[in-house]
């Protein structure tokens, strides 16, 4: 594990996540009728083969990776563009790795606020928290953005679509 690059470790973690999901499905196949499980079994077998090839490519030395998992056939220009795009994506990924956890934490907190306060107040609070605490913008920018979001949610969801925007009681949440 220690000799693996960060990219390899991320790939491996994602593959393990996929494996976990596949195993849950395999266990859930028990008790299903023959008709209900026939096609999922075929797809599971095919997907497991692809998963194994991807795992081999992830663990293999760099020189072997192109042999195990070739790129799609695209015109040369597209390949060059893709390289440029992937480089940009990787750069974004690095930036995201630094700011990513905070962003996801904010998203989870926003959802909790929307459930607890309702979607109108929750949206306003979420936008304000992001803009002031994370993006560190001025109140002059944050307040109109929060007000506009709340107004849009109210007009579209509460007025036009007649959606009950909460708050959502905990008892409803605990009955998925």
């Amino acid at each position: 594990m220690r000799s693996m690059s960060a990219e390899q470790r991320r790939q491996l973690a994602f593959l393990l996540l996929l494996l976990g999901y596949g195993l849950v499905l395999v266990v859930s196949l028990q008790g299903l009728s023959e008709g209900a499980r026939a096609f999922p079994i075929i797809v599971l077998v095919g997907t497991t083969l692809l998963w194994a090839v991807k795992l081999a490519a992830t663990l293999a030395p760099a020189s072997w990776r192109a042999v195990i998992e070739p790129r799609g056939i695209v015109p040369l220009v597209a390949a060059a563009e893709a390289d440029r795009g992937m480089a940009a994506g990787e750069a974004a990924g690095e930036t995201g790795a630094r700011g990513g956890w905070l962003l996801w934490l904010w998203l989870l907190a926003s959802l909790a606020a929307m459930f607890a306060l309702g979607f109108l107040l929750g949206s306003a609070a979420s936008v304000l928290v992001y803009m002031k605490a994370i993006a560190r913008t001025t109140w002059r920018a944050a307040l109109p953005a929060a007000a506009a979001t709340t107004a849009f949610v109210y007009l579209v969801f509460a007025e036009a679509l007649r959606v009950d925007l909460g708050p959502i009681p905990l008892t409803v949440l605990l009955q998925p």
């Binding site: 999901y21 209900a36 997907t47 998992e69 070739p70 790129r71 799609g72 695209v74 390949a79 563009e81």
Partner: peptide, 26 residues
């Protein structure tokens, strides 16, 4: 075939999409 990255990753994504579609009423 048309994937700009790994072909295996694209096929695996398609397989995952199929598996996700199996949840629920048949």
């Amino acid at each position: 075939l048309a994937a700009q990255g790994s072909m295996i990753a694209a096929l695996l994504s398609g397989g995952l999409g199929l598996l996700l579609s199996f949840h629920g009423y048949i």
